[in-house]
Amino acid sequence: MSALSPGFADPVLDAQACFRAVLEAMSRPGRVVTAGAALRPPAPLMPAAAAVLLTLADADTPLWSDAGADAEAWLRFHCGAPFAAAPGDAAFVLVTGAPPTLETLQAGTEEKPQHGATLVLQVAGLEPGRGWRLTGPGIEHEHRLAVAGAPDGFIGAWAANHARFPRGVDVVLCAADRLAALPRSVAIAEG
């Protein structure tokens, strides 16, 4: 096994900067921000996805990932998060390939919707200003987001996820060192 690449150079301030980027993305769905540009995580883990998990995942948050042994070893070491046996048992679900269906992930309950999982979904590219039409809290009129390599049928699956609000899954889309977020409150229409 090759030596692990390092995590954040400054664990305190880098995590803070990444959190503010994720907070901005979650507060203004569809806005693309950068995170983790200095990270060199093992493939297929992308810098932005790695940064999000370094910032938010720890021993309290079961993690599930399809990213393979190298990425799992890296995440285990740097986050200290336990790995869940199935995506439905995880608080954070990292997906680099074909995602499990949104219904199989934790969605919380009507009384405790905050227990819904966060899906960190790696895609090929994110481009604001065109593509999907996003509306909802955090968006003044309409945000547009073009997602290259989005999973097949994502819009339909998202409509079902959005419809069960306040239950649901929140998604962080990552492409290289860029990310955008889709909180469950946002509605997506094809562009």
Partner: peptide
């Protein structure tokens, strides 16, 4: 905070 933002 992130979950709070997602569920206004």
């Amino acid at each position: 905070i992130l979950k709070a933002v997602a569920i206004p």
